[in-house]
Every structure is written in C-alpha cells, then in structure tokens.
Design a protein around this nucleic acid. Sequence first.
RNA 1: GGAGAGGUGGCUGAGUGGUUGAAAGCGGCGGUCUUGAAAACCGUUAAGGGGCGACCCUUCUAGAGUUCGAAUCUCUACCUCUCCGCCA
Length: 423
Amino acid sequence: MFDIKLIRDDRQTVEKGLQAKGAAIDLGPVLKYDTERRKLLTQLEELRGQKNAANDEISLALKEKKDPKKKIASMKTIAHKIDALEPKVKKVQAQISDILIGIPNLPHPSVPVGGAEKNKEVRRWGELARFDFTPKTHIEIAQALDIIDFERGAKIAGSHFILYKKQGARLVRALFNFMLDVHTSEHGYTEVFPPVLVNRAAMTGTGQLPKMAEDMYFLPDDDLYLIPTAEVPVTNIHREEILNEEQLPVKYAAYSACFRREAGSYGKDTKGLVRVHQFDKVELVKFVKPADSYGELEKLVADAEKIFQLLELPYRVMLLASGDLSFAAAKCYDIEAHAAGMNKWLEVSSCSNFEDFQARRAGIKFKDKATKRAAYVHTLNGSGVALPRTIVALLENYQTKEGTVRIPKVLQPYMGGAEVIRK
RNA sequence: GGAGAGGUGGCUGAGUGGUUGAAAGCGGCGGUCUUGAAAACCGUUAAGGGGCGACCCUUCUAGAGUUCGAAUCUCUACCUCUCCGCCA
C-alpha cells in the first residue's frame, strides 16, 4: 500500500517517480478523497466521543440506581447520526485504498531514468566461451544427449513444460542442492521450504496482486494461486508481524518450483528452456533495517553472483532503468549469464530492494529501539538463482566437440562424481 | 469428508452485555541493591488514525447482524486443535 502521507506531503516527488516508472497516475483524485476522508472522520470521531460519554453516564446512572431512560434516548439519537455517517467514511476509505494499492513503488535516485535501453552494465565477470567448432544450442545438445524430452513434456502438460531425464533430471537436483548449500553454509541464509500455493493476501502483500493476476495460475475452487516465485511465500512468512531489532537482518534461502502463465509472451522464446511455465529456482529473501537496505542489496547481488563464479560461467550485472523496474521494486540488478550456443545474454537473477513497499502492504515491522516505535522493515529478494537458464548456459558453454558436456568441478559431487554428461 | 472445541496484547492466559484497551503471569525496558552480575523488590511496557497541543477516535481473526451500548449474544467466512473416516 502506497503511503498517502508521502503523496500529501511531497506530491511532486511522487509524480516525478511515477513518471520515471512509466505509470501515468493522476494524484488529484486520491488527494481529494483524502481531504474528504479526514473531514468526515473528524465529524465521526466527534460523534463517537459523544456516544462514549453518554455510555459512561448510563453506566454510572445504573450503578447509582438512577433511571437512565433519558440518557438512553439521547444516546440513541447519537447512534443514528453515526449510522448515517459511517458508510460515507467507509466508501471514501475504500476509494482511497483502491487507488493506493495500484500505485507502484518509486525508483531510487541512483536508478537511471528511462526504458530498458537505459539499463546500465555495471560489471562483467569471466571470459566468454570460445570453441574451435560451431557451438550448438542447448536444445540440440539436450536432445542429442537425451536429457530433456521437450515433446513428452508438452504431451503431459502442454508446450513450455519440461520433462528432464537421466543426467538432466539429476542436474536439476544437483543445482538446487548446490545453490542451497552455498547460501546456507557460506552466506548465512536460513533454509526454508515453503508452500507453492498461496492465498490472495500473500499475493497482495508482495505486490503480485492486483496488477499481475493474468500471469498467475489460479485455483478458483480454493481461491489459491500458484507462486510465480518463492519470494511470495517467503516474504509473507512475517506478514502482520513485528520483529525484534536484534534479529535483523533475517535472511532466508528457499528452493521452490515456480509457475508462470507467461500470458502475452507467445511467440517469444518458443523453444527450449529460456521461457517455461514451470521452473525451479532458489530464492533469497531478506528483512533488514531501513538504513541497511542498500548495503544489503549489494551483498545480495554478490551472493547470487557467487553461484556463477563457482560454476565458472561468464555473466554481467545490469542496473535496471526506472521503466524496466517491477511494480514493487525501488532498485534492481539483473544478472545475465552468457549462453555461447545462442550467443545471448540470459537473465538468470533479479535482485531487488523494495524498501518498505512490500512491508507496508504486508504489515511487516520491527521494534525500533531508538524511537521505541514499530517501523516498517525493508524487504529485498533475489534469485540465487533460476535453474533453466543456468542449465542453458551450462550446456552451451561446457559443450565439447564430441557432443558431451563437461560438468563444473563444484557440481561433480552433486552428480555422483560424474565429470561429463554423455549419452 | 463427519463430530466436537477454540481463535484476546511480543508470548501464555483471564474475561458471558455498560468506566475492560482489556486481570494475572512470562518476556522487554528503567530503577533500587551489588565491585559487577544473578536473585529480590519498585516502576514501566499494544498497534494504528486525527489534532500544534491538553486530548480524542479505532482495533479482542474477518465480515454482517441484534442492542441505546458487544471481546462478551446471533449468522457467515477463514484459520487452529481433538476424535473418527480416507490417504502419499
């Protein structure tokens, strides 16, 4: 929920931020409703005060064995006035919430203003793979090695659903185990394994609802959604909670399957692993003190990068421009791995600082010792990392002339000691 | 799926129509005592909204209702627990 106070106090900054994000929202109406709400609320509270006072008098009269009839009658009059006013207040409050819930987070000042063309490469790691033969795409490699069956995946569920086989299936298991191990034992994250179905409140809390409804699988009989990322259940672990300042930062690493309808992206990446409806991902989620959140964002990106460094896969880190940011994000880095077969940079991780945007919607606070008040935490999350595109990079970068695929050192223990994937 | 019992502050838990925003305990914070700590004792300690402020209003899972008045009564939804059934 966007902070109405910020709109009230600094309308220009909000408008500028929204414009940078490409969200054309007229703040006039919400401010008008806000003024009206406060006017009505003052009246309502005045009446409620009268009612409470009358009630005290009645209760006192009863105690003193006096007749409260007259007082009851006057309280009745007040109650009628309140009944008339209450729906008006509720209505205007609902109008305000409807607008606020649809306002995206503002970009951080360090974010370049503009569309995707303004995305900025901030660093690059590793050497691009070079071959003395023409490298194949992961589709050709996987089919030749019989480790992915695209046709039968489609037969079972539909196109863009993947059936991994043999060392392909093992590779999936190897990768998320490896990633979880790195993040829990080296980066200090607590492992969680969340539900992949969540309710409406959870989806609203992290900001997927109301805007992203058409991109999610929904089970109407149970009013439940399949998660598009573990960010949703994991961030909602602490929904409507007040955390202790000492326990911050809280850091979770979660493996989950993720489900995306990818509505509207038909015709894009129609083949292979680049865009699929169900995929696996290890997600990192942090709850931090507001003052620490930008430092924590840099660490989060570094934690995700570490996976590619260990896998020895070349990548670059992109700072997203304002127009390319998601609804809830204030600042975001994408990690893009290079896939040699397709000769493309593939987005494999997205690390974002949401500041207090999600915390506000989900009611996640901490007890601030300095002020002795409950304040919103800042939430962050990043993929650490998404599997299918990492598999694309692995297959395409580690392919050999013979058609086999070398397994990076760190993964070999997870692959039963195998050094190569062969048919 | 069937039967029953519940959902109260950071936690446990009292409260069955009117000074109850809510007893008590635990935990937290401050103090006395102590070289320091523990123990003991004293005090303090919910969140949100409005107002410059004294202060006022809201909130006992959520929504609807009964009543002059609801944590307390009624209905609905959701959730939890116990027993039975089914089941990986």
